[in-house]
Simulated assay, not measured.
Amino acid sequence: MDTWRRHQARVRQGTQARGPWPRPARELVRDAARRHTLEHPAWGHRKVWAMCRRDGHRVSQATVRRLLRDEGLLLEANSQRERRQLAARRKAAFATGPVRTRSGKWTSPSLRPPLAAPGDWPAAGTTGRSTSWAGTSR
């Protein structure tokens, strides 16, 4: 009840009832975080946080993230998706190139034998091998 009355008294006096609270951690680390981010634009907030900690600042990851977000220095959320798509396109470009076989020789995709059609498969139960174990020693 006392907290509510103090709040009401501040409102009646015209003073601000709440905030803004000081943000000493943000102010102390702002220059270091900004410097690391501008030197290495591909780094995210976790790497920048680690480098700020290495510089001797005691700050949390969330504080560094908020600071970089407020400064407009964070990468967009879909930058990782774009990197994955680029990697997939590069991988697809090389998928049509030469392939190393089990013997270690290189072959071209056009020289590979075609896959067997279902009609070419052996009948069920016929593997072409003798499955009799009679007379064999282990």
Rank of each mutant, 00 (worst) to 15 (best):
N78W: 08
R30T: 03
A95K: 11
H45N: 07
D55L: 06
A134K: 03
R10M: 11
S60Y: 01
M51L: 14
T101Y: 03
R54S: 04
T107I: 15
T126W: 05
P114H: 12
T107F: 05
R6G: 07
L67C: 01
H45E: 06
D31M: 05
G128W: 09
R54W: 02
R23Y: 00
P41C: 05
A92D: 13
E71G: 02
R112A: 10
Q13F: 00
V59D: 00
L75Q: 11
K47A: 14
A17P: 09
A17H: 10
W49Y: 08
L73Q: 03
W49N: 00
G19M: 10
W106L: 13
R90N: 15
W106Q: 12
A33G: 01
L68P: 00
R66D: 04
H57R: 07
R6L: 08
L75I: 09
V99L: 15
R34G: 00
L115W: 08
R129H: 13
W133R: 14
D70Y: 03
R35E: 11
H57V: 00
D70Q: 07
D2P: 07
S103W: 03
A134E: 11
R102T: 08
W49C: 02
L28P: 00
G72V: 04
V11W: 06
G14M: 04
S130A: 13
L111S: 14
G128C: 12
G104A: 09
Q8L: 12
S108W: 09
M1N: 11
P24G: 01
A33F: 00
G44N: 06
D120M: 08
R84D: 13
Q61P: 07
P118G: 10
S110R: 15
T37Q: 12
H7A: 09
A17I: 13
G19F: 08
R90V: 03
P22C: 06
